[in-house]
């Protein structure tokens, strides 16, 4: 019974088509599988290549920019540290204030440091105020101009100059001294390198010309014998 059903379906006409149809179907299925997998693999590889090429270009640009930095700019790295130090520069500013007061014939009568605080811009700030006897207004202007262009950086917040009862000019100046922590880590290697903008270059030139405080280096002394160890 079964044999006769097979014979009915698998007639010689069908049998002659069965071979090529099965081969054709097999090829089509294989073709679809290869195309599908191949396409997705190539797509993945293309996107990986794009990413790696981008990173490569970024690194190349960064390297080129690092090699192209003019040496003059790098020499200013110590100047900017003096202009904006990482420790409270109050004493240095007082020393600068005294120096410029002397140079401009001002006599410093009182000086005060107070209110150390942190600002929102990762800066620390301290207020300084000084009282002066001033010979004339021109000396006061020259003194202020010296203060504006001196390192460490300070801002002049308020100034009052008045005639005293005795007829002499007296001034009171309020300034702020600033300092900030140093950056502690380098950005990731593949992060793009940002060059100095025109404004930053101008600012660098300006602060590099600020008059620097005078530091005294004590010469090393040779150890000697103390005759009286209690003195």
């Amino acid at each position: 019974m079964k044999m006769s059903l097979f014979r009915k379906i698998l007639t010689p006409n069908i049998m002659v088509l069965l071979g090529p149809i099965s081969v054709l179907l097999g090829v089509i299925i294989l073709f679809v599988i290869i195309l599908n997998n191949g396409y997705s693999q190539i797509k993945t590889q293309l996107s990986t290549l794009k990413t790696t090429r981008n990173s490569e270009n970024q690194l190349q640009t960064k390297l080129d920019k690092l090699k192209d930095i003019p040496p003059g700019i790098l020499d200013n790295s110590s100047d900017v540290i003096v202009v904006l130090p990482y420790k409270n520069p109050g004493i240095l500013i007082i020393s600068q204030m005294r120096l410029y007061a002397n140079n401009n014939s001002l006599s410093l009568s009182k000086i005060e440091l107070k209110n150390a605080s942190k600002t929102n811009d990762q800066l620390a700030k301290m207020q300084l105020s000084g009282e002066f006897d001033i010979p004339n207004f021109l000396s006061a202007v020259n003194f202020l101009k010296n203060m504006i262009s001196s390192a460490p950086i300070s801002t002049l917040d308020e100034l009052t100059i008045k005639l005293s009862q005795a007829g002499a000019l007296e001034g009171e100046l309020k300034t702020s001294a600033y300092w900030a922590d140093l950056p502690t880590q380098l950005p990731p290697l593949n992060e793009p390198f940002r060059e100095l903008t025109k404004e930053e270059q101008d600012l660098l030139t300006k602060v590099a010309n600020f008059s620097q405080p005078e530091f005294t280096t004590l010469p090393p002394t040779t150890p000697g014998q103390r005759e009286n160890p209690f003195k």
Binding site: L66, I69, I73, L74, N76, S77, V80, I81, V83, L84, D121, Q122, L123, I153, T155, Y178, A180, L182, P183, L186, P187, F193, R194, L196, E199, E200, L203, L204, V207
Partner: peptide, 16 residues
Amino acid sequence: QKMILIKDRLDKIGKI
């Protein structure tokens, strides 16, 4: 490192 330091200081000096 030097450039990062310069940029950091300049950024803050600009704010001051």
